[in-house]
């Protein structure tokens, strides 16, 4: 029976029972599928709608893009990210100058705008640079560590004089041979590909140090050792160092190079051939005729 006048006697607490609607809603929330869709689906839905609202209008899209660009720039331009100067280590003044010339950076610049791999490629592309390491040091310094190529030979080719390193890479152009008299001279086509063999030959030819003028690559297959007074030693294609040592042994034993010899031909190492100078050859013939008792005019 429902009393006509709602009685609220003292100590009578409110009815703890949920209403039917509250009870049903509660049960609906406890349904796993519904609960999951509410927890994951609803935020996803709101996100999708807001993205769609922005993306469907070009003006809003532009505004958002501008805003994003603005924020990005304001972060990038913070003083913590600015690079103020470039420090170059391990390079001679000329190379450092060249690096500063080819790396077109105007400091100060944000480190986000620096394309370090490309700069590294550019610097490593210099002939005089063997290896370049770039990094941005704390404090806003672009640190370039360079190891230069070591020139080991001078290569004369078609009127140009260039310095090469061990691998045959060009290091720099020389104005005159006399700029680097300490380096051995090589010449001929294909000589730059065999710099290491040339160095071995030069090392082997140390006993005739003062007479050695240089090495000539002949026909891109073998070496000629050029000595002073246009004398030559023709070396074979295979194991030229052994052949050169053989000649030096002959020289030690018989002083062959001190004689009036134009050319020592070692192209066939088992049969060394010597060409005398014109005058020496005539002298030799005359001596032979005298020995044989032939009268001459």
């Amino acid at each position: 029976m429902r009393s006509l006048i709602p009685q609220l006697s003292r100590g009578d607490r409110a009815d703890p029972a949920p209403s039917r609607l509250a009870y049903r809603l509660n049960r609906l929330l406890l349904t796993p599928l519904f609960h999951r869709s509410l927890r994951i689906g609803l935020p996803l839905c709101i996100l999708a709608i807001s993205v769609a609202v922005v993306a469907l209008s070009p003006e809003r899209r532009e505004t958002v893009a501008l805003w994003v660009e603005d924020v990005k720039l304001s972060v990038q331009q913070r003083p913590e990210f600015m690079v103020k100067l470039m420090a170059i280590d391990g390079a001679s003044d000329r190379v450092a100058e060249a690096i500063r010339e080819i790396v077109p950076v105007h400091f100060p610049v944000s480190s986000f705008d620096l394309d370090l791999p490309a700069m590294q490629r550019t610097i490593a592309g210099l002939d005089a640079v063997a290896r370049a390491d770039l990094r941005i040091r704390p404090g806003g310094i672009l640190q370039v560590r360079v190891s230069e190529r070591m020139p080991v030979v001078v290569w004369r080719q078609r009127g140009r004089i260039e310095m090469l390193d061990v691998t045959g890479q060009r290091v720099a152009t020389l104005d005159a041979r006399t700029d680097r008299p300490d380096l051995p001279l090589i010449a001929g086509r294909g000589a730059q590909q065999l710099v290491d063999e040339a160095l071995e030959l030069v090392a082997a030819a140390r006993p005739l140090d003062d007479r050695l003028r240089g090495l000539v690559r002949v026909g891109e297959r073998r070496w000629d050792v050029m000595l002073e007074d246009d004398r030559r030693i023709l070396l074979p294609e295979v194991s030229p160092v052994r052949a050169l040592e053989q000649v030096l042994a002959l020289h030690q034993a018989q002083e062959i190079l001190d004689r009036d010899v134009e050319l020592v031909d070692m192209r066939n190492p088992r049969r060394p051939t010597v060409r005398l100078a014109q005058a020496a050859a005539e002298n030799l013939r005359r001596i032979k005729q005298i020995e044989m008792g032939v009268r001459t005019e």
């Binding site: 029972a17 949920p18 009870y23 509660n26 406890l30």
Partner: peptide, 12 residues
């Protein structure tokens, strides 16, 4: 109503 109270509390 009593059953509803008990069931809802137990479900909770």
């Amino acid at each position: 109503r009593g059953i509803r109270t008990a069931v809802q509390a137990a479900q909770k």
